[in-house]
Design a protein around this nucleic acid. Structure first.
Lengths: 203, 203, 203, 203
DNA sequence: CGGTAAGCGAGACGGTACGTCGCGTCTTAAG
DNA sequence: CTTAAGACGCGACGTACCGTCTCGCTTACCG
């Protein structure tokens, strides 16, 4: 890691520029969206030369991937005292991330890049989803110990299912009810039977 | 009730050009992908002037949406004799549609357009998913009558769940097993308990 | 079937369309000029189909040539009683033809077509300038008979010189005096000595 | 007094590109003419991007005006020892400039632009004709001092007349004699009487 | 402490694709 | 057989970005 860290000659790269580039990228992503965003516009908004961007990122896609990466929330593991309360908390924070314009752009970008570029999909999976999947195992384990869940409940499939529903509901938003209500209703439908005591929707 | 189809004056638009444009679009979508496909190239390949394209579609996006629309399969309702056999059949045909390069491009295009443009999402839902959801109700009903399913199984949520899983598995392909195997495994996990006799994975 | 046509069969060409096409052409020539005038616009303005124009004229140039042709004044030979009075009258009518926007466009069109296309130049010369040159011979002859001019004055060169000056003054308008005043001043300079009694500028 | 020549930031415009663009423009003007010349073709021939052209010129017309400007000959004042010899020399060099295809295109362009656009006419007059008119005053002055001309000969009108005749003869070339012969004949006709000793046409 | 090497804002560069417009031709139905 | 309407193939237009390449300057460090 320390490989030539400080011994590179010449002027070091400006941290201020790093920051300004990412901020301008995010701003424009929100304002005009991925497609209509130009590198020239980012450079102008950031008060930076284009070469300063291209020195850091070799393409528009890479820049945007990094900008989104920089936004990512800290991974927090909810602990409300009940399994369903934890799920509710996860739904709530997913809703906050996803249901604003930037969130939609972000999801669109990730999905369409992932579908086009398998390497990106894998990278994203490894760096973002995998940790959350593992964190979810903890939530599920606590549920088991509280006797809220059957002992053989599969954490990974549980997580994937929740993620699937959320993604689907983001792409095709239900028009009769809210995103969160719909997501809860589907999960209720799927998992009610897996809860020894049934399950109370907190909607 | 004819929608003024033939009373417009002047030379009618060429159906042959319609067809050639869509075919060229699909060919190039497969060969070079959405991003690297140019209208000029489509026009050249179709043996058509650019204006003939722009007379029909006001942008690249619109053209591609229509090209994809034109590809869509006839809606077929499987009837294999068992509910799980029908599901298998649905998974199989979804796999065929989705797992080739064009299919991925198509899904990417639909998802990212849908996330960006809610009207498109709604239109797509109404014209494509809704009919399939209704067709699925028939499959499920047959399962109930055969006693394979609980009488209260909710067809819509069932369908949405299956769709969700498939979408998710398309975006983030499992790396240890095949797409179809993974999809079946998740459905098995979710619905096994809803089958009075249990359920035998045909994998 | 066997009935042979005595007259030309089919619908005769519309004289009204002939007229409307030329009028629309002239109007647009004045309003937007040769370069920015489109056949589509002429057809629309004339309330006529494009093919109706192309049945009559094989190109934009031909149409405009005919439109200009249709505008041309009757050839009138002035007879004011004095040679210089006649010249004044010619200058006056040339000014009226030339110094409005249409006139300038017309001159521009004629000159640039003539320079590009020798056949047009020759045609224009033969059909327009030649007759006026011959008419001028009459004016000059009357001047000789009145003793206003030397007996050996060459009518053709006289005419050409006057035309030359007028053309030059149209292209590079004098900025200190009016077109007509300038033209008269040059002619005075050139021809004063050729008048036995000198010459009185009527300016 | 330096016009901020070198203090503009950023990469300076390439002089090599300037040159290549003008050369390609002139080449194509000669080969295919004004109307059939495309900016794309100029860019390709010059080995330059279209934007490099449009950064310098906002339209085809402006580019061609500059290309022609760049061709213009050095102003040379003939001094053959006799006034008529000097005139002959002027006619000769005008003929060389004017009577080839490029020359005709050039004249056509100048005339038709001048008639359409008074600012261009004035600019052209000021930058091209005015200096030549002043140079001609020197030629005429020498003629006076040699006693070849009357002392009151007006240099400006003299020059304008010569220019007029030349322009007219370019637009409507005489068909019985050469351009030069015709021009000389008209000048002979007009100015013979202004020469104390008469004048000998060198034709 | 002065040289050297990289980074910097600015902006021009060769390209590619865009969506528009005009040309002159072709195809309808109506007259 | 012409007409009005308008679609057609073609090809140029001028614009917008791409990712690269100079410019003339900082800004560090290293000898």
């Amino acid at each position: 890691m320390s490989e030539s860290a400080k011994k590179r000659p010449g002027r070091p790269r400006s941290i201020e520029s790093d920051r300004a580039i990412l901020q301008a990228t995010i701003d424009l992503l929100i304002e005009v969206g991925f497609t209509h965003m130009s590198i020239d516009a980012i450079a102008a908004r950031a008060g930076v030369g284009k070469s300063t961007i291209y020195r850091r990122y070799s393409s528009k896609e890479e820049l945007i991937a990094d900008a989104i990466e920089s936004l990512r929330e800290e991974l927090v593991i909810p602990d409300t005292g009940s399994f369903w309360g934890d799920i509710d908390s996860l739904i709530e924070s997913a809703a906050q991330l996803t249901l604003n314009p930037l969130g939609k752009q972000t999801v669109a970008m990730i999905i369409s890049t992932a579908l086009t570029n398998p390497q990106f999909a894998q990278m994203y999976w490894r760096k973002y989803l995998q940790p959350r999947r593992q964190a979810f195992a903890i939530v599920l384990e606590r549920g088991k110990q509280r006797g809220e869940l059957q002992a053989d409940a599969n954490s990974d499939l549980f997580f994937d299912t929740i993620s699937s529903i959320m993604l689907y509901a983001s792409v095709f938003p239900p028009n009769a009810e809210s995103w969160g209500t719909y997501v809860r209703r589907v999960l209720d439908f799927l998992f009610r039977d897996k809860m020894p005591n049934g399950l109370t929707n907190s909607g």
